[in-house]
């Protein structure tokens, strides 16, 4: 388990200082994690994206109403599912063909 501890001993900190330090640590950690890329991820995601999961698009009515439309498109990626990828291949090709013809 990755866990990092900064022991400041008896240093007295105000709430503001404490929160500022915590925020800086979080930002540093997230920055490091974000900068490490995952080359195989996008391809796998795209493959299953075309498997016909039918995720909904944002609701245009709600968007017009000024609500925070969140495009909740999520993709379930099943590790090592060659069968799924094989099924996905045809819809992907069909989708491309449809776009070209459209």
């Amino acid at each position: 388990m990755a866990r990092f501890v900064v022991d400041l001993g008896n240093v007295k900190l105000s709430d503001e200082e404490h929160n500022g330090i915590a925020s800086a640590i979080h930002a540093a950690v997230i920055g490091h994690l974000a900068s490490s890329t995952n080359p195989g991820l996008h391809a796998a995601t795209k493959t299953l994206n075309h498997a016909g999961m039918g995720f909904a698009a944002p609701n245009p009515v709600a968007t017009r109403a000024g609500k925070a439309a969140v495009a909740q498109t999520a993709v379930a990626k099943v590790a090592a599912t060659r069968a799924v990828k094989a099924v996905a291949a045809k819809p992907a090709a069909t989708s491309r063909a449809a776009r070209k013809s459209g």
Binding site: K46, N49, T73
Partner: peptide
């Protein structure tokens, strides 16, 4: 198993 795929939209 879920990640958000912005490319979908």
């Amino acid at each position: 198993l879920v990640t958000y795929n912005a490319a979908d939209n």
